[in-house]
Design a binder for these strands. Sequence first.
DNA 1: GCCTCAATGGCACACTGTGCCACCTTTGCA
DNA 2: TGCAAAGGTGGCACAGTGTGCCATTGAGGC
Lengths: 212, 212
Amino acid sequence: MPTAPPSRPSSLTERRKAATELEIARTAAALFAERGAAVTAEDIARAAGVAPRTFYRYFRTKEDAVAPLLTGGVRDWAEGLADLAAREPELPLGEVLERAAREALTPADARAEEALEWTRGLLHAMQDNPALRAVWHRAHHESELALIDVLARTTTAGPLEVRLTAAAADGALRAAVEVWAAGETDEAPAELAVRGIRLVAAGLPWLTERRG
Amino acid sequence: MPTAPPSRPSSLTERRKAATELEIARTAAALFAERGAAVTAEDIARAAGVAPRTFYRYFRTKEDAVAPLLTGGVRDWAEGLADLAAREPELPLGEVLERAAREALTPADARAEEALEWTRGLLHAMQDNPALRAVWHRAHHESELALIDVLARTTTAGPLEVRLTAAAADGALRAAVEVWAAGETDEAPAELAVRGIRLVAAGLPWLTERRG
DNA sequence: GCCTCAATGGCACACTGTGCCACCTTTGCA
DNA sequence: TGCAAAGGTGGCACAGTGTGCCATTGAGGC
């Protein structure tokens, strides 16, 4: 999960802003994981050492505060695949999706590793916090839009096919992270995602097999 | 979209409650479609002829007010397929999904027809109203949970496969309704959904084909 | 060292959603 | 028919959310 392009050596002000944003995000994630939905924006602001008014300058809602830790992987994937699809016009789309997924879900540094660990706790906290889950869903919605855009430009598939493929591919990424976060497997998120994307491309045989 | 089991001949009080709920839902849908997100709970309440306090007895948030018109189809689908899977243990799961989808998305009466029409307007209003879109996504999240439950009980597929199938199948239903609502096709929602489910089961060839 | 500008925080405000209570209609029963 | 229990409704107060506006302060360019 690269999440940030090598982090250009920025000015003091910019570095402080980035540090504050990350501090708020960590604080919010910890509080949501610890106390569930019974956390106020003021709680987060105070614990992060900023004024409530400042908190809302960084994030539009209190749930949004966890986005930097929660949705980085999805964002990276959506951006990465658009780039890759343009850069390698020969590559089948399935492979574009796989490579971008592997890159986005393989932690590249300590920062990305930490975000992935927070993701685990946040996905758990979502179980009984709809507003928090909405952040997750919104990120995936945006990734779907990006996918629809790429598919519409690079295939001749019809509207249903395009939207369906976007939903299924994004669903594969989402399922991979959710299965990993639930502790239902030993595989790494990146491996799960690649496997999921291949399944989607090849078909789901247990839907056509006779049950019994 | 049956949405309501034949509507048992209820008491006066119950019929009034149902009428009030529907009136609020219609009012909310009309206001959201007309004015976007710039609608207050008080606006909806006043236009529907109830007190704000009463409004919040019917719905937890102002966006939830549109749920009876927006999410009926998805709910019917999720419930229908659980029933059907149990009732016809021989039927391949793909066919269970298809039949339930056809039933849930084929308007059964004027009430269902109306709801489907509102759905169109609401899906459009969602474009610039994240809170409204969250209602849509939450309904699909619940449908996914129902699907995961059915799949876990009736197949031997692993955790990734189960979650992935749930995401893809629900995604097919969602894509079908969204494509229809966007006016990108002449097909009916039910036909689109069935076609989508079959695609998911059989695989998506344009992901493996070489581009050009 | 000064000047500009952006980040911060305080304040007021509209709006959201809920607990509590008082009222009144419906409903069940004598 | 009369009456009491039950439940729907609405008013009120209140904690919390999110934003516009303005003063203060510290960083970065000259």
